[in-house]
Design a protein around this nucleic acid. Structure first.
Ligand SMILES: [Mn+2]
Ligand SMILES: [Mn+2]
Ligand SMILES: [Zn+2]
Ligand SMILES: [Zn+2]
Lengths: 143, 143
DNA sequence: TTAAGTATGCACTTCCATTGCATTGGATGA
DNA sequence: TCATCCAATGCAATGGAAGTGCATACTTAA
C-alpha cells in the first residue's frame, strides 16, 4: 500500500507538471524517486532492459522541460538527472543547490540542503543558471 | 619583437612545467594566449587546418597534466581549456575561479578575479576540485 | 466509432573523446 | 658524423552518448 501511495503521488506530480502519466513515465519517475543519486540515461536503460533508449531520452527531456527533473553536469561529460524537490521552480536563489561528484564511486548526489552562495558578477553580465559541482570523495567512500 | 618576447615567455613557461617546447606546442600555447575565451579542441583545429586533431588533443592533455592549462566544463558537453595564470597551482582557495558561459555567443570566459566562495560540505565529504559555472548573457551580448 | 494528436519504437546520424599503431624528428652518446 | 633511442606527431579506427526522422501504437475527445 505504501507503493501505491508513492505511485499516486508521482501520478499527481506528473499531472501538476502537465505531463500525461503514462506507464512509461510512471516507471521512469518512480525509478528516479528510489535512487539517492543522480542517474544517467544509461542507468535507466540498464534498469529496464526492455525500454527503448529513445523513449527514456524523450521522457527525461519532457520531465526537464516541465520542471519535474533537473539536469546535472558533474564534469564526467555524461548528463545526469535528478527529481526536483516538491515546489521547486529551479530558482537560482531558492532552489538551486550544490552537487557532489565522487571520483571513487563515480556517483553524483544532490545536496539539496546546500543552496548556492550568492554570486556577484562583473558589470554587464547576467546570470540565468548556475552550476556548482564539488568533486572529491563522498561519505561512503571516505574511510 | 613583442611577438618574440611572447614566444620566449611561452617557451620558458613550458620548460618550467617540464614540457618540451616543440613547434607544435608553442603554436598551440601561443594561440591560447591570444584568446580571451576558453577554447575547444575544435577551435584549435579550425585555427590550424594543417594540424592533426590527435596531436592537439594530446598536446592539450599534456598541458593539463603539467598545470599549464585547466579544463572547463561549461555545461555544453564540449570540453574547453584555458591557460592557467602565472603561478597557478589550481589550488581551490587561491586559484580556482568562476567561469561564465554565454548562451548567446556560446563563449566561455575565465573570471579570474572572481575566486570561488568558501563551500562547506556535509560531514564525511572531502573536496578536491570545484566547478562553478554561471550561464547567462555576457557583457558583449547584453544590450 | 472515428479522427487527431501523443507517445513509443526502431533505425540511423553526428559529434567528440579516446586509443593503437606506424612514422618522424630531435637529443645524445659512441 | 653517425647510430640509436625515446618522445612527439600523424593516421586510422573505435566507442559512447546525444540527438533526429519516420513508422507505428495508443489515448482522448469529438
Ligand atoms: Mn540536484
Ligand atoms: Mn578558468
Ligand atoms: Zn563515493
Ligand atoms: Zn555572449
Amino acid at each position: 500500500m505504501e507503493g501505491k501511495q508513492v505511485k499516486e503521488d508521482m501520478e499527481a506530480r506528473l499531472l501538476e507538471g502537465g505531463v500525461r502519466p503514462t506507464a512509461m513515465r510512471l516507471l521512469i519517475s518512480k525509478f528516479m524517486l528510489q535512487q539517492d543519486t543522480a542517474v544517467a540515461l544509461t542507468d535507466i536503460e540498464n534498469a529496464f532492459a526492455k525500454v527503448e533508449r529513445t523513449t527514456i531520452y524523450r521522457t527525461i527531456k519532457t520531465f526537464e522541460e516541465k520542471g519535474i527533473v533537473h539536469q546535472i553536469d558533474d564534469g564526467t561529460g555524461i548528463q545526469k538527472y535528478a527529481l526536483c524537490e516538491k515546489g521547486c521552480k529551479c530558482d537560482i536563489a531558492r532552489d538551486l543547490h550544490l552537487h557532489f561528484h565522487c571520483r571513487n564511486c563515480n556517483q553524483t548526489v544532490c545536496l539539496t540542503n546546500y543552496k548556492l552562495p550568492h554570486i556577484n558578477l562583473p558589470q554587464g553580465y547576467s546570470a540565468e543558471d548556475i552550476s556548482l559541482v564539488v568533486t572529491g570523495i563522498c561519505k561512503k567512500c571516505g574511510l
